[in-house]
């Protein structure tokens, strides 16, 4: 299986690659449209700020390539947010795969949300062998509201979409590569889709 991890300068690409290694899968980092398009699975990681990340994606001329991918694609954290239409962070136009707006947390709770929170209302093969209310590791200040593509929810002041899916595109707000065993199960499930 060819697994591409899109490399546009995001900080956590290596962590994703290492996590796949621990599961016994080889993957490659790439910013090459052809290599990414011909992979069996594509992982679109991301940490950092939306506007500058989108700028980096455009600089690599990947903004057309990613929405046209036909194989299973997993967006992680900022990767998931960038698959949406628009983010309030830096007034950023995203890739528009999901017709959704990413909003900033408006809550009395601490922002960013940093740490382990629960995922619930799980509805996707992505969560096979993962129990309701499992803990995943999250770090974010912006969130995707509940919508028709929601496949997992999390509560932080409000209930929001911690995972979304549409066709071959999957997005998770948490970091499976840093979420202990449960995260590894999710990555394995994705690779077995």
């Amino acid at each position: 299986m060819k697994i591409a991890v899109i490399d546009y300068g995001a900080g956590n690409v290596q962590s994703v690659k290492y996590a796949l290694n621990r599961l016994g899968y080889e993957s490659f980092l790439s910013d090459d449209a052809e290599k990414i398009s011909s992979a069996d699975k594509v992982i679109f990681p991301g940490v950092g700020e939306a506007a500058s990340a989108m700028k980096a994606i455009k600089a690599k001329k990947l903004e057309q390539v990613i929405p046209e991918l036909k194989q299973p694609v997993l967006g992680i954290c900022l990767g998931m947010q960038l698959m949406c239409n628009y983010s309030e962070e830096g007034n950023t136009q995203g890739l528009g795969i999901f017709d959704l707006t990413v909003k900033r947390f408006e809550t009395d709770l601490k922002v960013p949300q940093i740490g382990w929170n629960q995922i619930e209302d799980l509805r996707s093969p992505l969560f096979k062998n993962i129990s309701e209310n499992e803990y995943m590791y999250l770090v974010h200040s912006y969130y995707v509201p509940i919508n028709e593509n929601t496949i997992a929810k999390t509560n932080y002041g409000i209930a929001y979409a911690s995972a979304i899916q549409k066709d071959n595109f999957y997005g998770v707000q948490f970091h499976p590569e840093k979420s202990s065993k449960a995260g590894e199960i999710l990555l394995k499930n994705f690779l077995e889709l």
């Binding site: 290596q14 962590s15 290492y18 996590a19 290694n21 621990r22 590791y137 770090v139 970091h175 590569e177 840093k178 979420s179 202990s180 065993k181 995260g183 590894e184």
Partner: peptide, 8 residues
């Protein structure tokens, strides 16, 4: 460390 551990 990053290769081995699965927490932040």
């Amino acid at each position: 460390i990053a290769e081995k551990i699965n927490i932040p």
